[in-house]
Design a protein around this nucleic acid. Structure first.
Lengths: 233, 233
DNA sequence: GCAATACCTGAATCGGTTTTCAGGTTGCAG
DNA sequence: CTGCAACCTGAAAACCGATTCAGGTATTGC
């Protein structure tokens, strides 16, 4: 019901793309400052409006220094998306940790996803922009999330908590699509008086969505349904 | 069950943004060539890689001429997205036309959506890129589709074909999100041997998805469920 | 045929970007 | 306190694309 943290990130030793040598303390700190600055700049301005100058300025670092740590603008963007992916999944698995039933875990996972989106609205836009900046990285993002989801659904089916006639892979993609569009519509588009997006998804919306999901996943009485074993992509 | 075609597009008389006067035959033809060329170029290269030079070259038209018909690169992009929106909805309502039941219409609408995506894989990427190029236009796109969907769901609820406990608006957004992500995963990402995406969505995938949707929408026996009247976004 | 009108053109302007590079700075080992 | 990696720097090179504009070319009405 939770994803072990080891699977979440590569803590591979960082090496300088310029010299090919491992980074020292100072080097690692500089790299981190660049990555954090890029997070703000990409989130506020989008990929194309963002510039290396803006990133290094915000990081308080010389322009030329950038290229000691990243090959290109695209490469720091990809590093950022992978970092965000780790954080979203962390948010989801953390939320699921306390769940007692499979269905409750489902609900909690969504709550974790929405919490992350609500807390970092602009960051989730960065992830979506990866579709156009680095499609390969976006695939990785979605695929990693779906894998966790799918495993959970399979387990829930074995436990009899979820309709066995549903294909776990398709269902996982369907659920993720719902979550994304509902998050976009009711978190990212929603502005209160001050122009800020809401801090959490409207509970009414969340409940309506969960009713839909509960309906969809609930085991059916008329057991049957083609079981469709061995479906692949 | 169908959207009247009048609602689909503005056929407002085209006027030149440069002179403010209505276009003649020749003018309209040139404008159309530019729009068609932009479709190909934006689809193949994405917004930022596309350039006015590339668009005018493909249209076989002088560079300067572009600005007689569109204010800017962004403005032709928006015109294109609005055009595509009309065509997607046309594809959907056409597919729904022959349906005999509400649920069958649901299924047919999805089929129409997937057919459009399969026939114009790159075009649908253009629509998604609007999120970053012209968010307002993307909202328009989604909102127009959802409105039709929502009306259909309400009617189906009145007819007793769809669970009355579901909120039509949330449900419409949920369904659209599912459709988008499944289309992306199983149409746009899928490549056969030749590197081309499949001409249609795998019927197995479609059926699995529809089973999920049927589950979700089916009226429940335990009638009750908080009716949650008067929900507003 | 001859205005007048609508339409077309692409070189040049302007404003911006990423990336390189020759040389400065820092901090640690000995 | 010295020397040498490792690290940092920002001006400038090399590039690119949106938009303008001064001057052309079709089309149409008379």
């Amino acid at each position: 019901m939770t994803i072990p943290d080891e699977l979440l990130g590569d803590d591979a030793a960082l090496i300088s793309p310029a010299t090919g040598r491992p980074l020292t303390k100072r080097g690692e700190a500089t790299r981190r400052r660049l990555l954090e600055a890029s997070e703000t700049v990409f989130a506020e301005q989008g990929y194309h409006e963002a510039s290396i100058v803006k990133i290094t300025e915000r990081a308080g670092i010389g322009l030329g220094t950038f290229y000691l740590y990243f090959d290109s603008k695209q490469s720091i963007f990809e590093a950022l998306v992978i970092d965000l992916n780790r954080r979203v999944r962390h948010s989801m698995s953390e939320a699921m940790a306390g769940a007692s039933s499979r269905l409750e875990a489902e609900r909690a996972g969504f709550a974790g996803f929405f919490r992350f989106t609500a807390e970092h609205p602009a960051l989730y836009r960065v992830v979506r922009e990866a579709e156009f900046v680095s499609p390969e990285t976006l695939r990785l993002h979605y695929t990693r999330i779906v894998e966790g989801y799918e495993a959970g659904l399979r387990a829930a089916q074995d436990a009899g908590d979820v309709d066995r006639a549903l294909d776990p892979e398709i269902t996982a993609w369907a659920l993720m699509g719902m979550g994304e569009l509902i998050g976009m519509r009711f978190l990212l588009w929603e502005r209160d008086g001050t122009g800020k997006p809401p801090a959490v998804l409207d509970p009414g919306v969340f409940d309506d969505m969960m009713r839909f999901i509960d309906n969809a996943l609930a085991p059916r009485r008329d057991a049957g349904g083609r079981t469709t074993e061995g479906k692949d992509a």
